[in-house]
């Protein structure tokens, strides 16, 4: 057999190829993976929602604190550091 014939044989080796069967449990694995990815997606959204609530809460707290401080009379804020200056 010369090289050309050999190459022709090789190139024709896929003629009449049959389809291979996927593993029997593959569909069950796919269903598991879908359930798992849905659960992960849900957890991700819960984490995002929790983060937003925490950030909003912190901002509200700071804003409320700022507004309360702003409304206090100035005198209250300017208390002397010490009432007794006699150290000895």
């Amino acid at each position: 057999m010369n090289m050309e014939e050999w190459k022709k044989d090789i190139m024709g080796s896929l003629d009449g190829i049959q389809r291979a069967e996927p593993p029997a449990d593959l569909f069950a694995k796919i269903q598991d993976s879908i359930v798992h990815s849905e659960a992960v997606k849900k957890i991700k959204w819960q984490l995002v929602a929790a983060s937003v609530i925490i950030i909003l809460g912190c901002n509200l707290f700071v804003a409320k604190d700022y507004l309360t401080t702003k409304n206090q009379p100035k005198q209250e804020l300017q208390l002397p550091y010490s009432s007794n200056f006699n150290i000895y």
Partner: peptide
Amino acid sequence: HPGVKLEH
């Protein structure tokens, strides 16, 4: 390949 004929 599991689908290839034995002789090939």
